[in-house]
Design a protein around this nucleic acid. Sequence first.
DNA 1: CGCGGGGTTGAAAGGCCTCAAAACGTGTGG
DNA 2: CCACACGTTTTGAGGCCTTTCAACCCCGCG
Lengths: 246, 246
Amino acid sequence: MLHHYEISRHSHHAIPAMRSAPSPCETCPVRKASICGYDGLDLSRFGDMTKRLTKPAKSTIVDQGNQADAVFTVVSGAVLLSKSLPDGRRQVVGIALPGDFIGLSMAEVHGFSATALTQVEYCRIDRARFSEMLDEEPRLVRRLYATSASELTFAQEHMILLGRRSADEKLATFLLNMRERWARIRSASARVDLPLTRQDIGDYLGLTIETVSRTFSKLAKQKLIAIIPDGIRILDLAGLAALGSG
Amino acid sequence: MLHHYEISRHSHHAIPAMRSAPSPCETCPVRKASICGYDGLDLSRFGDMTKRLTKPAKSTIVDQGNQADAVFTVVSGAVLLSKSLPDGRRQVVGIALPGDFIGLSMAEVHGFSATALTQVEYCRIDRARFSEMLDEEPRLVRRLYATSASELTFAQEHMILLGRRSADEKLATFLLNMRERWARIRSASARVDLPLTRQDIGDYLGLTIETVSRTFSKLAKQKLIAIIPDGIRILDLAGLAALGSG
DNA sequence: CGCGGGGTTGAAAGGCCTCAAAACGTGTGG
DNA sequence: CCACACGTTTTGAGGCCTTTCAACCCCGCG
């Protein structure tokens, strides 16, 4: 009844070291990894329990309810974190982009599913070993704590979106958010990649596909955005921000 | 644009030490405190930056947007954690009960408000000093991390509630939740205290007061609950669980 | 006794959902 | 190169759940 799970992005407050390029896992098997912005770690002494892997789009990385025997960091691509009810209703609880950590909760059982939105490269780290690592690396724990707190802040921000915002506001906020997240990884651009289906977006925002689609069209009609393949282009940032502010 | 804030309950996984009675801050000024289930801390060496305080119902403990110069642990009473949009729409992001920690994020600025639902006794801990404490107490950081991860799990559970559940399900889930939380603190009982107004509950569940009220009446009419002053009595636990399951 | 805050209930409106069909894009095979 | 199939997206029409607006009740308090 009590699961634990979550994802982690790089902390939202500036961490100069990783602002530029998140580059965990340069080798394979991994010798060094930037975990939540913490680089001072030589993974080699943990042997081969860290692996660099690749999965095709739409494949499952972790399955809700399964034994959690690993944690992950995303190297490239995008991963959808979602939680489902027995009857199939789904809520997307996060989107992991390059540099993000998956498995912050260190729970025994995954309380969420993670599916590849695009082809994904990621590092797999044995959970038990990672847990031991934490005992030896208090600074890593501190980073993980900071990341977790940051995630929590984001989660609460998302709650007000789900509970109190209209469809228009939800979508506008989402687009601005994605823009900012990509900006952290690449560079700021009016073009916002959306490696998600309408269904995914709907499940993220608590809407149906139809409403998502209609809202996209509406924003496009208002010249706030232009709909392009696999994403959008922001035409009126201020206008969009007026909707998604708060 | 990037705030940090949150609350923390005792970790959901059993922590035998605190299962029974959360009793932080036995003296005033505080000498010892159980912080997120971590008791091995002698606060006295931090001098008088910890204080035991009491506030009347409805008073404000922290105000969204204000400088965060302290963190807190609740001793008795209940505290509402909420986040508001500029236009006044509000989302309750948590309810802190005795034993809970407020201020997990350690952010510079409060991203949420905390108001006393009842008369509240709590411990106030200077944030800067607390931060120093973390440098000296890796085990405390580890507890805080665990608590934060647990909070995150709860937050994600709440997201699916806000995004994907009906009013009936929302309320049923909420009531079962409160029942379980009280059970941790006192003992299990069919009677569930609700030190919240309908408005608070609505803002927690993403509903209006009217819908909350109607749904209460509906559940009462179905003999699942009985409405009593300042709370409810659960008449049909299984029936309620059928609604609030998942 | 009248006022104000919270709660309940009713009627009507509205935003989002449901059901449905058509448009679009992409990959496959003739 | 086109025809076709399949999955996704868009658009339309209608309905439902929750909200909105409003009235009324209850109760504590000045």
